[in-house]
């Protein structure tokens, strides 16, 4: 169902081109990572898909419908957990569904249980650790009815140890609750470990310069990051990224 197609997207701010003829697509239940140097317009891409701005040219199609400038068509998980401090964790994970108009408290409680947040339903966000807040934020986007989830460098603020734990957790829960995911990161290993496909963005004005299919079997375990194949991928992606920077 959730098929995102982006065609020839253009966007500039104050005359500076940020996106130039950017095209990509995401299949149903596919996990796609977008890698790019910092400041390469990744956030702008998300804002356009999220409908905060209208593109200057091009089209964003979700399941065939044009969603240019239409808010609320996708669900979103930002870099910071952005939980509302006055809501309990349960009310927080329900927020996305609530905004979209239909919430299911029972499903939320079950999901929290599966996600390792059982017993924290009535806690407030400040009582959670950084990793747990991010779990709550991801559950919030999973419980939203939208078929596509945008993840904006969700683990970049976590320490290395928590991050790899969270990556494994994310894969586990996604395996059981399949959605189409667009995941932005600047971490090559993270992209390789998580994604089915990796898109590499160029410097500004951004467009897709390379695409890698990641052929590791699912479910994946952390130790694939130590294999020769993994390193090989990493080298290739690194080369592409370096070339983009030097240009």
């Amino acid at each position: 169902m959730a098929e995102l197609v982006i065609e020839q997207l253009m966007k500039s701010f104050d005359g500076a081109e940020v996106l130039k003829e950017l095209s990509l697509h995401i299949e149903k239940d596919e996990f796609v990572a977008v890698l790019g140097p910092s400041g390469s317009g990744k956030s702008t891409l998300f804002h356009l898909i999220g409908g905060l701005y209208e593109p200057d040219a091009g089209a964003i199609l979700l399941d065939g419908d044009n969603i240019n400038g239409e808010k609320g068509s996708v669900s979103y998980m930002p870099q910071s957990p952005s939980l509302l401090p006055w809501r309990t964790v349960l009310d927080n994970v329900l927020l996305g569904a609530e905004i979209a108009g239909h919430k299911d408290q029972q499903a939320a409680i079950q999901m929290m249980e599966k996600a390792g947040l059982a017993g924290y339903e009535q806690s407030y966000p400040h009582q959670l650790s950084g990793g747990m807040k991010q779990r709550a934020a991801f559950i919030r986007s999973l419980l939203s009815p939208q078929p596509l989830i945008l993840l904006d460098e969700p683990f970049s603020a976590l320490d290395e140890f928590t991050r790899s734990e969270m990556q494994q957790w994310l894969l586990d829960i996604w395996q059981r609750n399949k959605r189409s995911i667009l995941f932005v990161t600047h971490n090559i290993e993270e992209a390789l470990f998580l994604a089915d496909r990796i898109l590499v963005l160029s410097e500004k004005p951004a467009h897709v310069v390379a695409e890698f299919k990641v052929k590791f079997e699912r479910p994946r375990a952390q130790d694939i990051t130590l294999t020769e194949e993994f390193l090989q991928y990493k080298k290739e992606i690194y080369k592409v990224l370096k070339k983009g920077e030097l240009k």
Binding site: G50, S82, L95, E98, I99, L150
Partner: peptide, 27 residues
């Protein structure tokens, strides 16, 4: 600003932003 950004990306309209975010935030 972060919370506001999330609310907008999640598709909240002006009314939802006010009652779910700005109002409790101003308490």
């Amino acid at each position: 600003g972060e919370l506001l950004h999330y609310m907008k990306m999640a598709g909240a309209d002006r009314r939802q932003i006010f009652w779910k975010l700005e109002w409790p935030h101003a308490m």
